[in-house]
Amino acid sequence: MGKNILNLIILCCLILGGMSNAYALEQGKSAARQIVDQFQDELIDVMKNGKKLGYSGRYDKLKDSVTNSHDLSKIARIVVGKEWEKLTETQQQQLVDVFSRLSIASYAHNFKDYSGETFTFDTEEATTRGGVVIHSHLTIPDDKPVKFDYMLKEKGDSWRIINIIANGVSDLALKRSEYTTILQREGFDALIAKINEKIDNYSKQ
């Protein structure tokens, strides 16, 4: 009898444990989706007010949106691939700094006006190594929709966007090819100079 009760307790613990695990997983997934949803909402909001805000207004608004939803330091590290290890600490910091500014600037430059675009969530899937991919698409009036797949990784108790794949073109892969090529062909200073030039151009247009 006592043994049966013990078994029952163990069973309950297992079930509860399993449930809480499942619950945690569910929480984790929806947390990832929340990050993407919120970022897309903020982006659309900035587009709607794009003209009024002007470039610097959009930059200010998106600074928090982008840094809170993207893991910019990790992205900066991935886009230089193995070259990262060859950089000094100062260079690594400099890279993360200018890369983050470039990311925000390119959003501020490109998402500047609104003509009825909407983001729609499609599906969510877990990757083999603990990441999450949020599949969504951007509907553009009178144009083909653009697929946006966001790859997220857990960071602390939240999730951060690591990569965006638009219509099958991976932003991370694209940037990694560019950045590693420039580092190998022209060196670190040239890379930083080019990034700064892009930021400048974005701010002027």
Partner: peptide
């Protein structure tokens, strides 16, 4: 923060096709 933009008028119609960062 980089300096404010000049909001080129020409971007209005084509802007959204170019909005997609990637």
């Amino acid at each position: 923060v980089p300096s404010p933009d000049k909001n080129r008028a020409s971007s209005a119609s084509t802007g959204n096709k170019n909005t997609l960062q990637i």
